[in-house]
Design a protein around this nucleic acid. Structure first.
Lengths: 200, 200
DNA sequence: TCAAGAACCGAACGATCGTGCTTTTATGAG
DNA sequence: CTCATAAAAGCACGATCGTTCGGTTCTTGA
């Protein structure tokens, strides 16, 4: 890797961390330059504009999400175990991924009303994730782990809700039982998808 | 109401609307002054600082939430109907309350890592809402609508998840079926709380 | 080793930020 | 209608914003 690429990677690492704390919009060239010990202009030379920097930060975070969540997930046995692995890694990503919490959650509520490349990139990432999740759940259905009438998209919607609630409870409310609550909600969700009628 | 109070109210109305679009942090005195047709200094005279403005915007939104969600909710019959009313009004609040979506959701992910009065106010509002919700659900239990072993706090957590997922799906993904999905999730949540064993 | 080119810096730009003053204008009680 | 007071404007401040450019320092391949 050339010098330029390595510093750019370092910048994006720092930028992602910083953005998770102050938001993609709150991120400024000046503070980022100070954090990376570069001059403003020296840093800026790596990007065409601030907007481009924001988009690249999102892509950078997306690559990491693929590495630490998606790839290990699809390497586990298909069906329910894979669904569970995905959930586990997703929750862990939110807790320990970045200092300021999941950057996609932060950016989503910040840019959901601001048309442009940043929003587009967010939507793309989210659509991708939802698509993967739908397939993973669909497989759990076809494997017989989940009932035939389980709607993978509805499952994805509800799983997203659990993860968002976890993020909210943990980061804003600093609820120590956030993760335990998320697990309980997840178990209930999975339980309602099982083929056999529940104990009654 | 004196002139001063009425303009201040108008400022806060506009500020809340604007903040829902660009975030509490993205809100600036200049743009807000332009939107209210006031001079920067004329507007600023109503507040001690920008931080104070942000806090008062949150309090303003909170008052409105109390009016359009909480008050009608506690006026409906206790138990499950009241739980349902709360959910309905909460969802409606998010869809139609402000142009840029629920300002609390936006501000939560923006300020969850920034210590200070704004964060404190957010936590206070959230704790209040959660407390009310817990009582409403608790009543549904004591009325016999929900099972005895239903955990109201867990219920609140999961309901918050559904609402957050709805916000996410609707605002970022512009999913037209967001509300329908939220209702399905809610029905499942309530269904799992019912005393009688389900059809089996 | 040495030149070509990449990487980085320093300084500056116009704009806008939040925040103080002082002055003008509007309000409303007597 | 008058006049004390409240409300809004005008102007300016230092700081920081994103961005540009010309020059300096470093990397790297031949």
């Amino acid at each position: 890797m050339s010098k330029g690429e390595s510093t750019k990677t370092a910048i994006l690492d720092e930028a992602t961390e910083l953005a998770s704390l102050v938001g993609l919009g709150g991120l400024t060239i000046g503070t980022l330059a100070a954090a990376t010990k570069l001059s403003k202009s020296g840093l800026y030379a790596h990007f065409a504009s601030k907007e481009s920097l924001q988009v690249q930060v999102l892509q950078h975070a997306r690559d990491r999400f693929t590495d630490v969540v998606m790839r290990p997930t699809v390497a586990t046995p298909r069906g329910e175990p894979r669904v569970r692995e995905f959930f586990d890694r997703w929750i862990t990503w939110q807790s320990t991924g970045y200092a300021g919490g999941c950057i996609f959650v932060d950016a989503a509520s910040e840019f959901d009303d601001q048309e442009g490349p940043v929003r587009d990139e967010l939507v793309r990432a989210e659509r991708d994730k939802l698509e993967s999740l739908t397939m993973i759940v669909g497989t759990a259905v076809s494997e017989g782990h989940f009932r035939d009438d389980v709607d993978p998209e509805q499952f994805g919607y509800e799983l997203e809700g659990i993860v968002l609630a976890h993020h909210h409870a943990r980061r804003l409310m600093r609820d120590g039982r956030a993760e335990e609550r998320a697990r309980r909600a997840f178990d209930r969700l999975v339980d309602d998808c099982r083929p056999v009628a529940r104990s009654a």
